[in-house]
Design a protein around this nucleic acid. Structure first.
Lengths: 229, 229
DNA sequence: TGCGGTGCACTTGTATACTAGTCCGCAACC
DNA sequence: GGTTGCGGACTAGTATACAAGTGCACCGCA
């Protein structure tokens, strides 16, 4: 495991950095589902004490990315199709409600930001830079939440999103995937610019359900990552 | 402050109990908004060490019920009208989406549970037992979330709900309030029983917006509890 | 009497020590 | 040889000790 902490001069507490590092490792499946974690081992690896590690694990437990069993151990949770659907449900409810409000409240400045993001996505797509594209994807959804006036919804959705993020992290880069995503993003923004709330909501719903479609494929490739139903 | 821990033989860790005790105290405004909290003081009061207190405070921070300022102190957050609206937005989005699914998936057994809850609400209303009514209110919304197949949404909404819960905790028991709430609950269940998703969603939306209406009154009575805009 | 500077008391963050409990393997006994 | 019981090596939960930093009060001086 090659988890590393960033410089600690950036204002974040050690616990925050441990949290970020562990979450990234879990979402990227570097820490694969089912893996046993040891607070002591993690603390040694990261060069910190158990205290910030425990704090990070507690937050990850609230996101259902790890399960802490007293006196037994801490484990990266297996991916549960039900939990993935739960996360998708929450995200769909929040983001569809948010985009409706975004349509009502959209400003020229806000639309310009969205266009800037779309342009950057197109560049990332042409260069095949998946990481950059994912970052821009997140940023776009955050911008939309901001336009709705309830950016907090984005934070919450993100917190409920661990299982979905893992699905995305495990999705193999299929040809045409980035292009399709970018097209859907353009449709989202176009609907907002047109002031058509129903169209925007429908586009968002369709867009979010895309992620779910890759679950069966991943489950076929990595059955050991999933709970048995 | 009369915060007390329950018996510790109920399977909950000390940190969980501290969290529950502190959250209840904050929501009931026993720990009033703006109040300064000291980890040491709380630990002494509760007869535990700082560690479980810190764990509880970290969770409350994620709910935005406390603000932790490094090297300075921990404070019960002031009620922010914006945060209240954020919470209402999140809850409305989640519960409206949930009740639509509940309409699709409602079973006879589920409807029977709802009816049982309604009957209990009527008893609590006649006896003027506000606490019991609040508990049944929570239970009803949880039942609805359960019927939707995404009970997790309820957990999440609840976690985002701290500011709304404080509003409810500060709402003075106005005459007729319980009756109105009970009537709205009956309408919710009736809409589900009728299989009318639009009606159910509209009823839920109206019901949830009721809570917001008491904000100005509370703000007038306790301006010191609120952030200045 | 007013103002400025220093030091103390208090804060949270982190590290470490200790407690209680579970699992697993080895050894002793049947 | 099989089974049972005990002990060691882990686990997370909790308590305590230490570090770093902030605000405020108090004291001395002009």
């Amino acid at each position: 495991m090659r988890i590393a902490l960033h410089d600690r001069v950036n204002g974040l507490s050690t616990g925050d950095q441990v949290y970020a590092a562990l979450r990234a490792a879990i979402v990227n499946a570097e820490l694969e589902p089912g893996r046993r974690l040891s607070e002591n081992e993690l603390a040694d690896l990261l060069g910190v004490s158990r205290t910030p590690v425990r704090e990070a694990l507690a937050r990850l437990r609230d996101e259902r990315l790890v399960a802490i069993v007293p006196q037994l151990g801490t484990f990266v949770t297996l991916i549960s199709p039900a939990a993935v659907e739960d996360a998708a449900f929450v995200r769909e409810a929040l983001e569809c409600a948010a985009i409706r409000r975004a349509v009502e409240r959209a400003t020229d400045a806000g639309l310009a930001e969205l266009q800037t993001n779309l342009a950057a996505q197109e560049r990332a797509e042409q260069q095949g830079d998946t990481d950059a594209f994912d970052t821009l994807d997140d940023a776009l959804h955050r911008l939309l939440a901001g336009l709705s006036g309830h950016e907090i919804a984005w934070t919450l959705a993100r917190r409920a999103n661990g299982h979905l993020d893992r699905i995305r992290g495990l999705s193999l880069p299929e040809p045409g995937y980035l292009g399709e995503m970018a097209a859907e993003h353009r449709e989202l923004v176009a609907a907002i610019a047109a002031g058509d709330a129903d169209r925007a909501e429908a586009a968002m719903r369709h867009h979010l359900r895309m992620v779910l479609s890759s679950v069966p494929h991943i489950q076929a490739v990595h059955p050991e990552y999933f709970e048995e139903s």
